[in-house]
Amino acid sequence: MLGNIKVVAFDIDGTLYPSFSLYIRLIPYIIRHFKFYIHYNRVRRIMHRTAPLPDFYEYQGRLMAEELGCSSLRARAMIKLIAYDGLIPYFEKIKPFKHVDETFKTLREKGYKIALLSDFPPSQKGDIWGLIPYCDLILGSEAIGALKPSKYPFGVMAMAMEVEPSEILYVGNSVHFDVRGANNAGMKSAIIASPLKRMFSKKIKEADISFSNYRQFLNSVL
């Protein structure tokens, strides 16, 4: 079913750790910065539909400046302070899904290359729960110039890994951003189901692999 997969690539947020464990911790922080996040979420919706940009951060800053009625420089500083740097301490308290480390280790032992592709700066997650040594490539789509589900960051990842898109299996937690983005780029896709879908054991039809835990995923790949 998977053919000649050489690279297994992963999203980070909601894919390597449960989203709810972060959201619960963020409630006071979001309330404190509620006005900022209302505007920021509008900007991100636009950025998800925007073609690849030579300077993602500059354009995002301009959009945010229009939302907030301030200078672009001020808007970029606020995004960095609140949306990027401000979340770093919260990730220090997050634990990954069970068997993630085992999965990465086994994939490397079996000869697969491993990549990370995230819409937010991977550096925000520190050492990414000790997974960095297993990774051949770590990319943030913002730095590349376009957010998922654009085919562009997936294509850049394939070129950087020196493989054909069809030789990559991309693992995520979103049908729209991860599964469709990877499929449209010519890659195979896998999705970790939400708690509700896991409860009813529903398969995500658009993904090549639908799984509820990482041991199940590993068995599917191997």
Rank of each mutant, 00 (worst) to 15 (best):
L2A: 02
G3T: 02
N4A: 14
N4S: 15
I5R: 05
V8R: 01
V8D: 04
A9H: 03
A9S: 13
F10S: 02
F10P: 01
D11Y: 02
T15M: 04
L16R: 03
Y17H: 01
P18M: 04
S19R: 13
S21H: 08
S21E: 14
Y23K: 13
R25K: 14
R25Q: 15
Y29G: 00
I31G: 00
K35S: 09
F36H: 02
Y37M: 00
Y37D: 00
I38Q: 06
H39C: 11
H39D: 13
H39Q: 10
R42P: 01
V43Q: 07
V43R: 03
R44C: 07
R44P: 03
R45W: 05
R45I: 04
R45K: 12
M47K: 06
T50D: 14
P52D: 14
P54T: 15
P54D: 15
P54S: 15
L63A: 10
M64W: 11
A65T: 11
A65P: 11
E66S: 09
L68W: 06
C70S: 10
S71L: 10
S72I: 15
S72C: 14
S72G: 15
R74K: 13
R76Y: 06
A77P: 01
M78C: 07
K80Y: 13
L81T: 14
A83P: 05
A83T: 09
G86N: 01
L87W: 00
P89I: 01
F91E: 11
K93N: 12
P96W: 05
E102M: 15
T103R: 00
K105Y: 10
T106G: 02
T106I: 11
L107R: 00
R108H: 03
E109N: 12
L116K: 05
L117P: 10
L117I: 09
L117W: 05
S118W: 03
P121H: 08
P122C: 04
P122D: 02
Q124M: 15
K125Q: 13
G126Q: 04
W129N: 00
G130W: 00
Y134T: 03
D136N: 14
S141V: 15
I144F: 10
G145T: 10
A146F: 11
K148V: 09
S150V: 01
P153K: 06
F154H: 04
F154P: 02
M159E: 15
A160I: 08
M161D: 03
M161E: 04
E164R: 14
S166M: 09
E167R: 07
L169Q: 00
V171P: 04
G172I: 05
F177C: 11
F177D: 14
D178E: 10
D178N: 08
V179I: 10
G181K: 06
N184Y: 09
A185I: 08
M187D: 08
M187N: 08
K188M: 11
I191R: 00
I192N: 01
A193G: 07
A193Y: 07
P195Y: 10
P195M: 09
L196T: 14
K197N: 15
K197I: 14
R198N: 10
M199W: 13
F200A: 09
F200I: 14
S201R: 15
K203E: 07
K205I: 14
E206N: 03
E206A: 06
D208V: 02
N213T: 03
Y214C: 08
F217K: 02
F217M: 08
N219G: 09
N219P: 03
S220N: 08
L222I: 08
